[in-house]
Design a protein around this nucleic acid. Structure first.
Lengths: 191, 191, 191, 191
DNA sequence: ACCTCCGGGACCTCCCGTTGGT
DNA sequence: ACCAACGGGAGGTCCCGGAGGT
């Protein structure tokens, strides 16, 4: 039987559809159609649409290469810039109007799904931590003032990035994303 | 009967409900129930849920006191800080898990409603412009380096604020909001 | 518009279908089809299938002519016998395999619907009370020993009737119903 | 592995679940979950949910100790009373809101399952016969008038018992059960 | 004998927007 | 302007049973 695991197909289909339309606007029908899976098979693999969305969120957040950011090679600040540029590149490739799944769910699902929100909040925290680690390395390398609270700044950069993604999403223009990099690295963190 | 215009009640009910549950999760029934208006009256006043949401968005964005930000009194940077603090205070009062209507719609409605997205994008732009104007005044007053692109920085701050709002929304914690102010004014723009 | 009230049609259709198939086996589709009402109209009139079933139960229990039983004319015991014979006649006319809606719901809905069960229990109590009242009149008229607890006996007769109905329902034979009358009045209450 | 035959587990799980929720409200999933048996194993042992329910009904009706009732020791009427008291005790121990499986299925399954209904009707008949036999013995022993049709009275008592069970089930109160015994033996059959 | 995975179809509920009469 | 009643169609979920491999 050459048929791939239905569960896997479901996750992939849902990744696209949930990303594109959002949680509430994407129906289970949309998802199974995109996945090429019969509707009746859905609940053999996931307890609910929410459970599937959680799995999709998990995969999405796991796709960020935080290891490379923490301990890749090159100067810390350059590495951090490369990290954001890569993330932006991926985002632009898929289409800026998709935004960031984490950001999308953070605004849509608060008050609707505890589990997903907890995962989203944790993902933001992990990402912020990794960014903060890079900033600390920059301080150690003398690229950044020691007086700065690296952890607070890490969160700040992630927030600014997410804000830029949202603005790019509504406007359909990737400019806010590029401006984020420029302002961050050429203005704020430059000396 | 002291009962105000039904249209007005509708807008107010919808403001609450759309803010709390999002566009797709809030049904027309929810809205008319919250507004205390008979269901059948809805379409006398609005062509669709989308049209009502647009009106709600208009009011929301009009509630930002940009005039005060542009030409209020006090030192520019202090004024800007007070502006964000006021916005945050209002947000915290209503409940951080509501987030910012503009931010909420920016992520939920891209690809679903052109009109609303255009209005949201324009609102962000106007707000960014006003912030930028304050920053330019800060430069004129010698509070900020002249080398900085005030316009880019204005957008950046708005983005960072929106990101912080989203994070506060998922985590149910206002800390990211306060951190935004501190990092912006005590770290990034401090000399 | 000659069209009868949809709510009324719904109640009538549901009366038939719920009676024939039971609560769980009767789908909302079955009901609207029997009522000749579009599916989408269902929830304009009833909050749920349960709410409709409650209304049906209300009408069913109201159809018992307890006033006639309590204060109709004729000797008390003859009146009581006539009451049961009338109830049985109606039941046999509709088809013994339908049983008694109260009895049907009492066994099917315990643990599924509090409201309905409460109504069913109350209906049995009212009916028992009316039967008991007739028995008391029989005592006053010297047709029945004074030593007997009329209230307990009233409940007993109702229980015996319901049991006979259930047996007639499974066996598809009205004999248990007729036997109930004979045994009650010609054996147990005869002197 | 001390694990008993899957078929046996299935029957036991189904006994509980069908008893508690009824035939239509109990899903095959509920049953296999209660039995601790994998879903796919179900149809190795039973052709359908109906076939399993029939088996459950068989066991249930076999659990009535009719032999003891027919030919146990003690005076016939006392034996009969003890019989009903034992049955009631068992019922109360399991919970009056479960009712009697025979009674439950008699009202729920008429028109849905011929086989089960036939079995239920036959079970009622056997039970009635055994009760009638005890009554005949009572007549022979001079405990009961000879003029009474023992067979008709046997059915009557079973009906009254089933009615009382149904009423106890809806009301959640065992009182009707105890009243059945009292009224039967202290009033109706007392001299 | 067992059981994982499968799936067509139906479940109850609710959606958004309309119709027609006051 | 108002609104009670309406309705086509979809929402997420779960049904009972079977296919196919171990």
């Amino acid at each position: 039987m050459p048929q791939r695991n239905l569960r896997e197909q479901l996750v992939e289909g849902a990744s696209r559809v949930l990303y594109e339309k959002g949680f509430h606007a994407a129906s289970v029908n949309d998802i199974v159609a995109a996945a090429g899976v019969p509707k009746g098979s859905f609940y053999n693999h996931f307890e609910s649409k929410e459970a599937l969305a959680l799995e999709v969120t998990r995969r999405y957040s796991a796709s960020y290469d935080l290891e490379q950011l923490r301990s890749g090679d090159g100067a810390p600040l350059a590495r951090l810039r490369a990290h954001f540029e890569a993330v932006i590149e991926r985002n632009a490739r898929q289409g800026v109007e998709l935004g960031c799944l984490l950001g999308n769910f953070s605004t849509e699902l608060a008050g609707h799904s505890q589990v997903i929100c907890e995962h989203v909040a944790a993902s933001f925290a992990h990402w912020s931590d990794a960014v903060a680690a890079a900033l600390e390395q920059a301080q150690a390398a003398g690229e950044l003032d020691h007086g700065i609270d690296a952890h607070a700044l890490g969160s700040y950069l992630v927030d600014a990035y997410e804000g830029a993604v949202a603005r790019a999403k509504v406007s359909g223009d990737r400019a806010p994303l590029d401006a984020f990099v420029t302002t961050t690295f050429d203005v704020l963190l430059a000396r």
